[in-house]
């Protein structure tokens, strides 16, 4: 469904991605992991056509996305940093997206799920950080799309909201969707991911399931395995 083909990207002198290739297909949750600044958000924004690769190509449903925009109708995207027109109310914002995207979203289910009813009339700039993130989730998930991309979905959420988010994501997985998720919260990775894609120094440093990762690192817990990857990054051979 999604193919990153040998992607390179630099910002000025900073080489962020140096030949990333990876494919996502057949449903399930892929966790994109890597240290801060490893290029996870950059890779995701490329899929959305917000950042352009210097080299390489991204394919969606077998077609290059370059200069295309219709394919985004099939993607639910949650940005890492929610940036909305601050003077709109939550309802106005939801209506704005509905007006632009058309179709038949189901926002009410999500509004109920995250108890947002009492916030609907408030302006975005008056919302707390976590509430804003909930709105961000509603906007991203209200459409029923085959691909879901979540960049740090847990930011600012309280434990209850986090549990609901997990359930929501698992529910979507059960429908056979392709889900990409980035996070630094290991419990979330353990609970959700079918597969891990570990970015390091501009490359895919590891790709596989959690048991495979533990095996690869020779550790029995995920957190330690990741730490192991980071510490031994120069010694190991790369498994993709």
């Amino acid at each position: 469904m999604i193919q990153f083909q040998n992607i390179y990207k630099s910002f000025g002198k900073l080489e962020v991605l140096k030949g990333v290739s990876a494919g996502v297909d057949g449903g399930g949750i892929t966790a994109i992991l890597g240290p801060n600044g490893s290029g996870k958000t950059t890779l995701i924004k490329m899929l959305l056509g917000m950042v352009y690769p210097d080299k390489g190509e991204i394919m969606f449903n077998g077609k290059p996305i370059k200069k295309e925009w219709q394919y985004k109708n099939d993607i639910s995207y949650l940005p890492q940093i929610a940036r909305f027109p601050e003077n709109l109310t939550v309802t106005e914002l939801i209506n704005l997206i509905k007006d632009i995207r058309g179709g038949t979203p189901n926002e009410q289910r999500l509004i109920d799920l995250f108890d947002l009813d009492s916030h609907l009339g408030k302006k975005i700039k008056h919302l707390s950080g976590g509430t804003k993130q909930k709105v961000n989730i509603v906007l991203a998930m209200m459409y029923d799309n085959p691909v879901i991309v979540l960049d740090e979905p847990s930011t600012g959420l309280d434990p209850i909201a986090l549990v609901r988010l997990k359930d929501l994501v698992l529910e979507e997985r059960a429908k056979g969707k392709n889900i990409l998720i980035t996070t630094h919260i290991m419990s979330l990775v353990e609970d959700l991911s079918d597969e891990i894609l570990f970015l390091l120094e501009g490359k895919v440093y590891f790709r596989g399931t959690i048991p495979e990762l533990k095996d690869f690192a020779g550790e029995d817990n995920l957190e330690k395995s990741i730490a192991h990857l980071l510490e031994h990054k120069h010694a190991e051979n790369i498994k993709v």
Partner: peptide, 16 residues
């Protein structure tokens, strides 16, 4: 001032 609006739109199925 409309930078947020722009970023919101960029992720939507719209032509740049």
């Amino acid at each position: 001032n409309s930078r947020e609006f722009t970023e919101l739109l960029l992720a939507q199925p719209l032509k740049r």
